[in-house]
């Protein structure tokens, strides 16, 4: 395994720990750092990088990444770890398929949490490298709400499998359920939501197109996992009229002129939220499409 840490990350992590511990003279990192200073290891600026690496490794901060990478040997044997300027995460770098890990220094504070995070990320990468998963060459073009739902579902799919393997996932089932409830709040029936989530938590061998589809159409997800009878339309509240409905018109079927009319009345409405069939008809008339 070729595991490479960018020097600026190592330095940033060390400084983060030192800065954090300044207030506490007995803190491990500060004591160690002070000891090293007393040994004049820092008089030579050229040795600062070595000092940082020494501290980084002696504190075992590299271990979670190595361990998680080892859990997924099929992903890549080459891992580069650098600093995240904004979003953290793991990325596959073509053409050789090295893994690029971007982390905030603070992420290293809690090895267990880092491990869980990385495990979640690495499983994403594993999915991407799995031909059966069907990850596309170009990233999918999704509107923000659909992208959020899709991302959420993939996270849950990842962590559910981790949990079933007996490892610690990034988030547990209850945490994901809370998140899921927020995204699928339009489903009135909590029993229906719970049933769908539980079945999804057990899901195996999902594909990327399926996740995309379910992100785009939240009702598809419920149809698939809640076992709704008949044509499986899902009851929820229309974001426009507030009436419960099982008859949704989602962005795929919404004409732009209609969506524009709706947005004129409902500034915060997004087509991905859909609307009930009746409301869409009301706006089709206003759009002259009736």
């Amino acid at each position: 395994m070729d595991l490479q840490f960018a020097p600026h990350l190592v330095e940033a992590v060390v400084r983060h720990f030192v800065d954090r511990d300044l207030a506490d003279a007995r803190a491990t990192y500060l004591r160690l750092y002070n000891d090293l200073v007393r040994l004049n290891l820092d008089r030579d600026p050229s040795r600062q990088e070595s000092l940082n690496r020494y501290l980084f490794l002696s504190l075992g901060l590299d271990q979670p990444i190595g361990a998680v990478a080892a859990e997924f040997p099929g992903v890549s044997q080459e891992v580069h770890v650098g600093t995240a300027s904004r979003s953290e995460g793991c990325f596959l770098v073509p053409p050789q398929g090295a893994v690029l890990v971007r982390l905030h220094p603070a992420r290293f504070e809690n090895a267990e949490r880092l491990t869980r995070f990385l495990r979640n990320e690495w499983r994403h990468l594993a999915d991407m490298k799995d031909p059966a998963f069907g990850y596309p060459e170009a990233p999918p073009d999704l509107d923000p709400p659909s992208r959020d739902r899709y991302a959420l579902l993939w996270h849950i799919y990842v962590d559910a499998r981790t949990a079933r393997e007996g490892r610690q996932p990034m988030r547990g089932r209850e945490q994901w359920k809370e998140e899921f409830d927020r995204y699928w709040a339009h489903v009135d029936d909590p029993g229906l939501r719970a049933r769908a989530f539980e079945r999804f938590w057990q899901a195996e061998e999902l594909t990327h197109p399926e996740l995309i589809d379910m992100g785009r159409d939240p009702h598809l997800f419920i149809r698939r996992y809640a076992g709704v009878a008949g044509d499986g339309r899902l009851g929820g509240r229309c974001p426009l009229c507030g009436f419960p409905t099982f008859h949704w018109v989602l962005n795929g079927r919404l004409k732009e002129a209609v969506a524009a009319r709706i947005r004129a009345d409902f500034r915060h409405w997004d087509p991905s939220q859909g609307a009930c069939e009746r409301c869409v008809e009301l706006y089709e008339i206003r759009a002259g499409l009736w």
Binding site: D189, G191, G235, F243, P244, T245, F246, H247, R278
Partner: peptide, 11 residues
């Protein structure tokens, strides 16, 4: 069009 389930309290 269906609005709510017929069971008690909509379940």
């Amino acid at each position: 069009t269906k609005a709510e389930n017929g069971g008690l309290a909509g379940i």
